[in-house]
Amino acid sequence: MVKIIYQTETKTFEKIPRYIYQRRNGWFEIRKRVGGVLLYWGSFPTLEEARLYRAYYMGKHWMVNPCFKANRYIIFENGYYHVMKIINGKKNYFGFFKDYEDAKHERDICMACDWDFNKIVEFDDLDYTWLGQPIEIEC
């Protein structure tokens, strides 16, 4: 893979591949126009992650559900990644984390448990974390 880099007197810019666009908040999103309709395939915190997903989508000839979002239910606010889902019209927070990977891990557990607090608490996971910190579980 060849990286094309542009340089000016004060900044260095890396060429962003086709279908990837950088948002104002620094995240990268994948968009593609299909049949005259602009479809969105997700937002990613790094260009490398966006490139990996773009390669996957292109390998599948874009025959992937465009509603999939890698960062779905994760929002970045006040320096933390929040796992949040709107249930019955109300915002429900399932934790906040300094690290994006920890937030993704917790979000995946919540999705696997169908966002049921009782199931999430009972979820058997070797590496228990709450608010990004490991915790002890007593049986």
Rank of each mutant, 00 (worst) to 15 (best):
M1D: 06
I5K: 08
Q7I: 08
Q7H: 13
T8Q: 07
T10L: 15
T12C: 09
F13I: 08
E14W: 00
E14T: 13
E14P: 00
K15D: 00
R18I: 11
Y19W: 12
I20H: 07
R24Y: 06
R24N: 10
N25H: 01
N25W: 06
N25D: 15
G26L: 03
W27A: 07
I30G: 02
R33N: 06
V34I: 14
V37D: 03
V37T: 05
L38M: 13
W41H: 15
S43G: 14
S43W: 04
P45Y: 13
T46V: 01
E49S: 12
A50H: 02
Y53W: 15
Y56D: 09
Y57H: 11
G59I: 10
H61E: 14
M63A: 14
V64E: 14
V64S: 08
V64G: 07
V64N: 08
N65T: 09
N65V: 08
P66F: 12
P66T: 05
C67D: 13
K69W: 07
A70W: 13
A70N: 11
A70D: 13
N71D: 15
Y73G: 00
I74Q: 04
I75E: 12
F76A: 09
N78Q: 14
G79N: 07
Y80T: 03
H82N: 10
V83E: 01
M84A: 09
M84C: 09
I86S: 11
I87K: 08
N88W: 10
Y93T: 06
Y93L: 08
Y93F: 12
G95A: 02
D99K: 05
D99A: 06
K104H: 01
H105G: 00
H105E: 03
H105P: 00
H105K: 09
I109C: 02
C110H: 00
M111S: 06
M111W: 04
A112K: 14
C113A: 12
W115R: 07
D116P: 00
F117V: 11
K119I: 05
I120P: 01
I120M: 02
Y128N: 09
Y128A: 13
L131D: 10
L131R: 10
G132F: 01
Q133H: 05
P134S: 06
P134C: 04
P134V: 03
P134D: 01
E136F: 11
I137W: 11
E138P: 01
C139V: 13
